[in-house]
Nucleic acid binder design. Sequence first.
DNA 1: TCTATATTCAATTATTTTATTGATTGTTTG
DNA 2: CAAACAATCAATAAAATAATTGAATATAGA
Lengths: 209, 209
Amino acid sequence: MDKRTFKNHAYGEIASLARAMAHPLRLEILDLLANGPKSVEEMATIGQASMASTSQQLQVLKNNRLVVAEKRGKQVFYALASRQVYDAWMGLKALTSHVNPFLDQYIRTFREPYGTEQSLGTATLSGSDYLVVDVRPVKEYLHGHLPDAVSIPMEQLAELSGSLPRDKRIVAYCRGEMCTYADEAVKYLREMGFQADRMDVSISEMLAK
Amino acid sequence: MDKRTFKNHAYGEIASLARAMAHPLRLEILDLLANGPKSVEEMATIGQASMASTSQQLQVLKNNRLVVAEKRGKQVFYALASRQVYDAWMGLKALTSHVNPFLDQYIRTFREPYGTEQSLGTATLSGSDYLVVDVRPVKEYLHGHLPDAVSIPMEQLAELSGSLPRDKRIVAYCRGEMCTYADEAVKYLREMGFQADRMDVSISEMLAK
DNA sequence: TCTATATTCAATTATTTTATTGATTGTTTG
DNA sequence: CAAACAATCAATAAAATAATTGAATATAGA
C-alpha cells in the first residue's frame, strides 16, 4: 500500500466522521440524545423539523455509528452509541467557544431578556439554602439527574410552583447551554416572586453516581 | 430573538467549525502543524498537493480561526491557533477509532509490511536499555521532543546509523499514528541488524516540560 | 382484514463544497 | 529595475450534500 494512499484513507475516515457531525440538526439530535433515548417523532417535534428530514439525518448519524436504533412497536428509539460520542460533541462545542467568541456572545445576548446571562456552575453550590430543580421532561430526569435535584418539568411548573419554598433560592437546570427550559423557568418564577437562577449542568454530572 | 432561531444559529456555528475540520487535507495540515509552524510550500510538499489547493484549505482553517498566519519574507508560516485545536483534533481521531474499527484495522494492515503493527507506548518504557530516537526533521525536534530522545531525522538515518548502539534496543517515534517515518526507520534499522521498535508518542508528551 | 400511525425510502431540485487552472500580488535577489 | 519565487486570488466545472416531496413499508389496534 502506497504511503499517500494510506494517509488519504486514514485522514479521510476521520474527515467523514467530522462531516457527520457538521450539521445543525444532527448536532441538536446528539445533544438531545445525551439526555436519554428518544423516538424520531419526539426529536422531530423538538427540533421543529419534518419526520422525513429528522429520519434522514438520523440515518447519517447511524451510518457513522454515532447513534444506535432500537425498534419498539411502531416507533424507533435512538440513543447515543457511547459515552465517547457525547465527549467528542462537548469537545467540539468547547473548541467553538474557544476559537469563536461570537458563539458565547450570541448565547449571552439571547439570555438577556430572560435575565439569565449569569448562570451558576455546579461547583458554586454548597450549603442547603438552595433547592435544585430539574425542569426537563420526567423521562430525562429519570435517565439521570443531579443527586439533590427534584423534578418539575417546565410544562408543569405553573401548576406545581405553589409547592416551592419562598425562603430558599431556587436553582433551575435543563439540557445544557443550548436548552431554553431553565431560562423560561427562571423568568416565570421570578415573575411569581421567587428567587430563581439558572445553572449550567453537564450530562456527565447528571449521570455521575 | 426566537428560540428556534437561537438554536439554529448556535448549533450552526458549531457545525461550521466541524465542517472546517471535515476534509482530509485540512486534517493532515492540523496534524502537521501540531509539530510546529510550517510554510505553505512545506505543507504542500508533504501533503502532495498543489500550492494553490494547500493555500485554499489553509484559508478555510484560518477563517475558522483554527490556525494563524505569519508572514516572513516571501513565505507565510502557519501555526495552530491554540493547544485546544490540537486537543479537539485528537478527540475527533479518538472518536473515529472508537466508533469505526475499520480505521485501526486499516492502520495495522498498512504497518504489516514494515513489521510495526505492535507499537510501544511511552508508558512501557522504563530503565535505560533503550535509546529513544526522534526521526522527524530537526526543526520539529527542536519545537518539542521527548526529554530523553536524540534527533536523527529519517533523511539522515543511513549516514548516522553507524553511531547507534547495537547492544541497546532502539525505539523510534515520529509525528504520530499517521506518520510513516518511524516505520521506515524501524524497517531500515532491522535490516541493518539493529533491534528496533516503533513507539506512539503524542504531541502533548513531546511538549511536556 | 382494514385503518391509522411511525418511520423510512426514493427521487428531484437547490445549494455548498471541492478540485483545478491560470492570473495576480508582493517580496527578495541579481 | 527585472527576474524568480511564494503565496493568494478568481473563475469555472465537477461532485457532494441538503431540503423537500410523495410513495412505500411495517406495526398496532379497531
